[in-house]
Each structure stands twice: as C-alpha cells, then as structure tokens.
Amino acid sequence: MKTFQTLAELSNLVGQEIAVSDWHTITQAQVNQFADATGDHQWIHVDVEKAKAGPFGDTIAHGFLTLALIPQFLESSLHIAEARLGVNYGLNKVRFMAPVPVGSRLRGRLTLLASVPIDNGGVQMTWQVAIEREGLSKPVCVAESLVRHYS
C-alpha cells in the first residue's frame, strides 16, 4: 500500500501510475451473491453445469461485479492520511474487454488522470483503473473512476 500525507501530495502525481492492488480471487459464491443482489441470474453466471457447455467453458463474473471491485482496489492500494472521506462520484469510459471465469484472480492498476479542487476542501480525482486477470495479457475491464476526497 502506498501512503500519501495530503491530497496535494497525491495530486502532484497526475499522469502517473500510482499503485497496483493485491490480487482478488473471484468465487462462485461471490458471483451468486452478486446475482442475488442485482437480480441478474443469467445462466452464464450462476448455472455451473450449463455454463460448461457455453461460450466461455465455465461460469463467469458479471461485468458489473468486476466493475464493483474498483473501490476495493483503490482502498487496498493507497491511503491518504489527511482524507477523512472518499465518495464515489461516477464512472467514465467503461469497457469490458474479456470475460472473467470463476476462479480468476484480478487486480487493479491505478493511474491518476486528473485532480481538481472542489467545494468543502475536497478534491475530485479521476482514476484510470485497468483491471487485469492473472495470465491474460490484456485487461478484462478499463474504466475511469471519479472519486471525491475530503480532508
């Protein structure tokens, strides 16, 4: 984990890769819980037997489950000592480029694209998050995540 004392210290690194998260393993239980939470019970996600004969040869994580790991990747990769609060503000340019079979290990590669002051002593940071699957040369998902940090 990388630690920054101030928002300004981190803001000075716009344009640079800041951190790479630890690996996270996708489990069938996690996929099933996500399906229950969202109502998306498509067989490619939850029917193990049917999915074996499907286009991916196994069940796969929902794209939105993969996307929902971004806060975990950020939180486990960097710490801003003076920030008392971080709030998801939105997403830009989300793309799902490859499936994530259950059992895959994922991690986030975090690049700070922008840092702009906002009201109440905050900073809005735009992060490019490239979600990598172990053993695959291209990312499975790339998104711009907008996070508002307040000191």
Rank of each mutant, 00 (worst) to 15 (best):
F4T: 02
F4A: 06
F4Y: 15
Q5T: 15
Q5I: 11
Q5L: 13
E9D: 13
E9P: 02
E9A: 15
L10F: 00
S11F: 07
N12I: 03
L13M: 13
L13R: 15
L13D: 08
V14Y: 01
G15P: 07
Q16F: 02
Q16W: 02
A19V: 01
A19M: 02
A19H: 02
V20C: 06
D22I: 00
D22R: 00
W23L: 00
W23H: 01
I26G: 01
I26V: 15
T27G: 07
T27W: 09
T27H: 07
Q28Y: 10
Q28W: 14
Q28A: 10
Q30F: 06
N32L: 11
Q33A: 15
G39M: 08
H41L: 07
H41R: 14
Q42V: 03
Q42T: 03
I44K: 06
I44F: 06
H45K: 06
H45M: 05
V46A: 05
D47T: 11
D47W: 13
V48L: 04
K50Y: 05
A51P: 07
A51S: 11
A51N: 08
A53H: 12
F56K: 04
G57D: 07
G57A: 03
D58W: 04
T59H: 03
G63K: 03
G63P: 03
F64V: 06
L65D: 01
L65T: 01
L69H: 02
I70S: 08
Q72F: 08
F73I: 01
F73Q: 02
F73M: 04
L74F: 06
E75T: 12
E75K: 04
S77M: 00
S77H: 00
L78G: 00
H79V: 09
H79A: 04
I80Y: 02
I80T: 11
E82W: 07
E82R: 09
E82A: 10
E82H: 07
A83W: 04
G90L: 07
G90R: 05
L91I: 11
L91E: 06
L91A: 10
N92I: 09
N92E: 14
N92P: 08
K93T: 07
F96N: 08
M97W: 08
P99H: 15
P99S: 11
P99A: 12
P99L: 14
V100E: 02
V102R: 10
G103W: 11
R105Y: 06
R105H: 10
G108E: 01
G108S: 05
R109E: 10
T111L: 05
L112Y: 04
L112T: 03
L113Q: 12
L113K: 14
S115Q: 10
V116N: 14
V116S: 12
V116G: 01
P117S: 07
N120A: 15
N120F: 14
G121N: 15
G121T: 10
G122E: 05
V123L: 13
V123H: 08
Q124K: 15
Q124E: 14
T126W: 02
T126H: 10
W127V: 12
Q128W: 05
Q128C: 10
V129F: 02
I131K: 13
I131D: 11
E132V: 05
E132M: 15
E132R: 00
E132F: 01
E132G: 00
R133G: 04
L136R: 13
L136C: 12
L136V: 14
S137Y: 06
K138E: 11
P139K: 08
V140P: 01
V142M: 13
A143F: 09
E144M: 08
